[in-house]
């Protein structure tokens, strides 16, 4: 008997650690409390939407000021990027022989092409900036503290994916700016310790290191363009969208954006 209870104590210990609680906490075992039993139909709809509580406490709501909208604006920029990006995809072909010409067509021939391309580019800059500012506000309002640690981590991944989305898109026009900007960026992979061909303690040959997985060869070329295009137009946006859903769901699970609890 005694032995058993001791073992149980140990098990419970793991679950009491902050890391365990952050990752599995109320994700698996917690209960979800709607703020008030109000209009059950509307609440049902609101619950499906999961984005806004139907009702919100006055105390909680009073803290929603401008800086608490930075995350929401990032979402907005993301959707704008998806719309304008879909339009750009119609006229763009990830081929080194035609990519640049496609972009020139966009500027001079396609109706509203230049407007859409500009919007896509500037919105991307805005999104990177606003995601960083959103992180700053989350930190300064201590919103990473329990029970929101997991959401902070998801946020960090979202930040990285936002940067990667921007970076992979940077190559697509296939102009000098794109080519050399990306050459600098990917040359970092070449210098990774152990796994990069030029890094310290390199164990992999040039053309077979981590960098060449990313670039598809020893230097930026057609394989890189195709890879970056697929990452930029399919993989990363899907990843971001999925993680965003998780991000919002976690906010609701934590009882809405952080107020003084």
């Amino acid at each position: 008997m005694e032995k058993q209870s001791k073992e149980e104590d140990k098990k419970i210990d793991v679950k009491e650690t902050q890391v365990w609680k952050a990752v599995f906490g109320d994700l698996l075992f917690g209960e979800f409390k709607p703020l008030s039993p109000f209009n059950s139909l509307m609440r049902g709809i609101a619950k499906i939407m999961q984005l806004h509580p139907y009702n919100m406490s006055v105390g909680g709501r009073r803290i929603i000021t401008y800086t608490f909208c930075l995350g929401g604006l990032s979402v907005f920029f993301f959707s704008l990027l998806a719309c304008t990006g879909a339009f750009l995809m119609i006229y763009y072909n990830p081929d080194v022989n035609s990519a640049y010409a496609n972009i020139e067509d966009m500027r001079y021939i396609v109706p509203f092409g230049v407007l859409i391309r500009n919007m896509h580019r500037w919105t991307a800059h805005l999104m990177v900036m606003f995601v960083a500012l959103h992180m700053l506000r989350v930190f300064l309002t201590a919103a990473y503290k329990p029970p929101r640690e997991l959401n902070w981590i998801v946020g960090v991944i979202l930040l990285v994916m936002t940067l990667l989305a921007s970076f992979t898109g940077y190559l697509l026009p296939w102009d000098q700016l794109a080519y050399w900007g990306v050459t600098i960026g990917t040359s970092m992979g070449e210098n990774a310790p152990l796994l990069g061909a030029k890094g310290p303690f390199a164990i992999l040959a040039p053309g077979k290191d981590v960098n060449s997985i990313l670039v598809g060869g020893t230097s930026v070329g057609q394989p890189t363009l195709l890879r970056f295009y697929l990452l930029h137009a399919i993989a990363i946006p899907l990843g971001i969208a999925g993680l965003m859903g998780f991000h919002f769901w976690r906010i609701r699970r934590a009882g809405g954006v952080s107020g003084p609890l």
Partner: peptide, 28 residues
């Protein structure tokens, strides 16, 4: 903003011509 300012587009990529002011996108 997009009506009045064009997104940059330089000449076609040329692996043989390293620009003297080679730079990463601003966030990097």
């Amino acid at each position: 903003w997009s009506l009045f300012m064009d997104a940059p587009l330089k000449e076609l990529a040329n692996p043989a011509d390293t620009p003297i002011d080679e730079r990463a996108p601003w966030y990097f």
